[in-house]
């Protein structure tokens, strides 16, 4: 061991332990991740190494929501640093065309909630730059993730699963199948034909709540895989939606155990059969 050991020369495991215990200062929005990356080349390379992401969860910026939209050949990533439920609910009442100009930072000023104040920050990157896309979303720990106007392919879903692996569970995924802003029942996010219920369940098992998930995926295989994931329990609800139909919300609080859910389904089926 050198007599003059330097902080930058500590073993990777020790540095990851140190980084993992760094407080994300709640009063500052500046990312501790960026701060640490700026210390030296070694810190920078350890922090951006995808294989270290699980242990770097603590230095991800805690935010309210990430919204990812595909607009032409670009990913548009919007980061909502903080929003109350009421604000986010109201947000769905506004239309927000893709050509909204980039927003400037507004400091601590509380802005009126409207179509131009939807998000604190946004970034557009080329869809070809997938590595950059995943590097960006791995900086954050959102409470919610929203996929908007995306052509979901099987490979994109598996890349997202890879990217989410090791995250503490994100509370909610919103697949934004319906554009509620325009009050039109138009499919926004589309799903490639090779995506099946099993793939969707694997993806869904990263989240407690699922909003606007196409009804076709929500079958017993899906429910079983989703509710029997590594982090069992604590599921909130699934809101499946069928094109041109009203969406329905299924609260899962009464279905803590899958066998109860299955039994309920069986009785419902029997009742339907007897009525016929």
């Amino acid at each position: 061991m050198s007599s003059e050991l330097n902080l930058a020369e500590l073993p990777v495991d020790v540095l990851l332990n140190i980084f993992g215990q760094t407080d994300q200062e709640k009063t500052k929005q500046k990312s501790i991740r960026t701060t640490l990356r700026l210390v030296c080349r070694r810190f920078n390379s350890i922090i951006i190494d995808p294989s270290n992401q699980r242990r770097l969860s603590a230095i991800r910026m805690k935010i309210e929501m990430i919204s990812i939209a595909q607009i032409d050949s670009f990913w548009e990533i919007r980061v909502f640093l903080g929003a109350t439920d009421a604000q986010t609910a109201n947000r769905e009442m506004f239309d927000y065309p893709p050509e909204i100009p980039p927003l400037k930072r507004r400091g601590d000023t509380l802005m009126r909630w409207g179509s131009e104040e939807l998000t604190n920050c946004r970034k557009k990157i080329s869809c070809e730059g997938n590595a950059e896309f995943f590097e960006i979303i791995s900086q954050f720990e959102p409470r919610r993730l929203e996929l908007d106007r995306i052509d979901l392919t099987r490979s994109l879903i598996f890349s997202l699963i890879d990217c989410l692996r090791g995250y503490p569970r994100i509370q909610c995924i919103n697949l934004k199948v319906l554009d509620l802003g325009e009050r039109a029942k138009v499919l926004n996010t589309s799903f490639a034909k090779d995506i099946d219920a099993g793939t969707m369940a694997k993806f869904a098992s990263n989240f407690h709540s699922l909003i606007h998930i196409p009804k076709e995926f929500v079958n017993s295989e899906f429910m079983e895989k989703w509710t029997n994931g590594s982090d069992t329990g604590g599921f909130d609800f699934v809101k499946p939606v069928e094109e041109y139909e009203q969406h329905t919300r299924i609260p899962l609080r009464n279905f803590n155990r899958f066998w109860i859910f299955e039994s309920t389904k069986l009785f419902t089926t029997l009742a339907e059969y007897l009525c016929c």
Binding site: A8, Q21, T22, T34, T35, V39, C40
Partner: peptide
């Protein structure tokens, strides 16, 4: 160690810990 990073910028951490 991580407590010493609080409120500091990257260059400040570098300077305090003598990292080139």
């Amino acid at each position: 160690i991580s407590n010493t990073f609080k409120g500091k910028t990257g260059p400040q951490i570098r300077e305090e810990w003598g990292v080139p």
